[in-house]
Amino acid sequence: MQSNSHHKILIIRFSSFGDITQCLSVIDKLKEKFKDCDIDWATRQEFKELISHHPNLTNVICLDRKSGLKGLFKMAFLIREQNYTHIYDAHNNFRSNLILTVAAFFKKMTILKRPTYRWKRFLLFKLRINKYKQPFSGQRDLLEPLLAWGINSESPNPPQVFYSRDHELQAKEKLKSVPETYITMAPSAAFFLKRWPKAYWKQLIEHCKDDFFVLLGGPDDQFIEDIIKDFPGRTLNLAGKCSLSENIPIIKGSKMLISNDTGLMHIAEQLGHPCVALMGPAPFGFPSRSTTKILQLDLKCRPCSKHGQGPCVNSKYHQCLVDILPEQVARLVIHGIN
């Protein structure tokens, strides 16, 4: 295929926050290969703002989760009308396959799907046989399928996540009571077993007496109030108070991010920003850049589940994160991740 001819390309990735953030690297890799191209993205409505500010993206096509099958067919026919030359299905699930079936019917286009490797997952989680390339890397897994189009799997240079001027101003307003130097924390995660113990976040703040901490998360992360209540004047809880894109300049302006295996960790990675990643039971969200310091334990039971949902089978419950001590993280805060 000719890399200097015009192409119209669609990326399909509906969710999640972390996976979409990692998948943003695909845009620049496509642009490097197909210089004169338009790149669109199909996703869920709630993730539009995370994607739409990328300078090499042309358009975002959104799916409302509440629209059901009718909305899915509406999106499929809209995509069909766009006459894409290439579609990269970076999700490869029922919804994306239905869309491809409709959009590609009697159409001439090149379709590429990200493999799901279900047989590898079965071997890993049921038989403890690991056939995945090591070390685990979420970005590499999203970029490697592009080899079929002559695109290498090296991550493009950061930043790969962007925000608007309005998001920057809104972030500054939320930080108006915060000193110029601060550290961001992301104590939450989609599943409990992916969370560093709540008491450890408190101990970390106690160890780092000269630092101010801004805590980020979602509206359901009420437990964060328990972390900060003993540290008035040294903490700010912004969990549930920021949009996805407002989190980006807040993390960018910090000294570093300390995070569980969650979407905010991938924001820091795609910014090329210093981050301490506390990696527990799940294998597929591992960061790739040298700006992220991974803390993990080599346990026979790891990884135990695809998303970190468990169950934990270790005789010492939650050992993969319980045995990463606050003192270890505090040393990285005080002396730097390098």
Rank of each mutant, 00 (worst) to 15 (best):
S290A: 14
S290M: 01
S290V: 11
G272T: 09
D298H: 12
Q270A: 14
G308R: 02
C301T: 09
A282L: 08
H273L: 07
A282T: 14
P303A: 02
I294K: 15
S305L: 11
F284I: 01
K300A: 09
S290Y: 08
S288N: 13
L299K: 10
P281Y: 09
P303F: 07
K306E: 15
Q296Y: 06
M279R: 12
T291H: 12
T292Y: 01
A277L: 00
G272K: 10
R289F: 01
S288P: 02
V276Y: 04
S288C: 08
R289D: 00
S288D: 14
R289V: 00
L297Q: 15
A282P: 00
I294E: 00
T291P: 07
F286P: 05
H273I: 06
K306T: 14
H273K: 11
E269M: 03
A277P: 06
F284N: 11
P283N: 10
I294W: 03
H307I: 05
H307G: 05
G308N: 06
Q270S: 13
L271P: 01
P283T: 07
L278K: 09
K293A: 13
L278T: 03
K300V: 04
K306D: 15
A277K: 03
P281R: 10
A277H: 08
A277C: 04
K293D: 01
L299Q: 00
T291D: 14
A282K: 03
L295Q: 06
T292M: 02
G272C: 12
D298S: 15
S305K: 07
C275S: 05
H273F: 10
S290N: 15
L278G: 03
L297I: 13
R289S: 06
P287Q: 07
Q270G: 02
G285K: 05
S305G: 04
L271C: 03
K306S: 09
A277T: 00
G272V: 11
K306G: 00
P274T: 01
C275F: 01
L278N: 05
A282I: 04
Q270P: 05
C304A: 12
L299C: 01
G285I: 02
L271M: 01
P287R: 07
C275M: 07
C275G: 05
R302Q: 09
Q296C: 06
A277I: 03
P287D: 13
K306I: 14
I294V: 15
L299D: 11
S305T: 13
K306N: 15
T291Y: 09
P287Y: 11
C301D: 01
A282M: 12
P281N: 13
L271Y: 04
P283C: 06
L299P: 06
T292E: 00
V276R: 07
G280W: 13
E269Q: 09
L271N: 05
P281E: 10
K293L: 11
L297Y: 02
P281G: 09
F286M: 15
S288I: 06
D298P: 01
C304G: 11
I294N: 01
R302P: 10
V276C: 03
L297P: 05
D298K: 15
